[in-house]
Amino acid sequence: MSLELVVFAIASGLAIVSALAMVVVKTPVKSVISLVLTFFALAVLSILLSAPFIAALQVIVYAGAILVLFLFVVMLLNLTQEAEGHDERPIQKLLGLVTVVALGGLLLGVTLKAGAPPVPAAGGPIGNVTDEIPILGRLLFSDHLLAFEALSVLLLLAAVGALILSKRRFD
């Protein structure tokens, strides 16, 4: 019963339970908090997968910035409760549930049965090396330089777009 297995069990259990909590809970604020917990558990799983940089990024960017943005929107717009469901459509809910279960079963079956693609003969740096951050840095600025620059333009566009879209019209 190695330590990795124990940590994996705890982290994946926490991730699944808080993801379920996010879907089930009525208040948006509690939804966001359960999603924060899910992302934290996913960060722990990423550390187990030899990706500590991605884990830190996940907490800093996702849990620490994007979800705070969600929380701000919820608080500033005062969205305290679930949308009023007076005209419930049970058929829609049933159809949705059936779709989810069917698709979920299909996905699980296909993923688990497919097995792993053949490993390249050279082996790889991830898992073999203690510090893979220099490798990531080198990859980012050599092979994926175009994507990196495009990403920075995209972020600028997103910031400007968000600013313009949410401005109040004072006419």
Binding site: I33, V36, F40, A43, P52, F53, A56, V68, D131, I133
Partner: peptide, 25 residues
């Protein structure tokens, strides 16, 4: 001695925001 030292500190100080926001809310 994790190899993401400073990012670990940034990650947890980002999580500290939630305490203040939730206390206020």
């Amino acid at each position: 001695d994790v190899n993401i030292g400073i990012l670990y500190i940034f990650a947890f100080s980002s999580l500290g925001i939630y305490g203040i926001v939730l206390a206020g809310w």
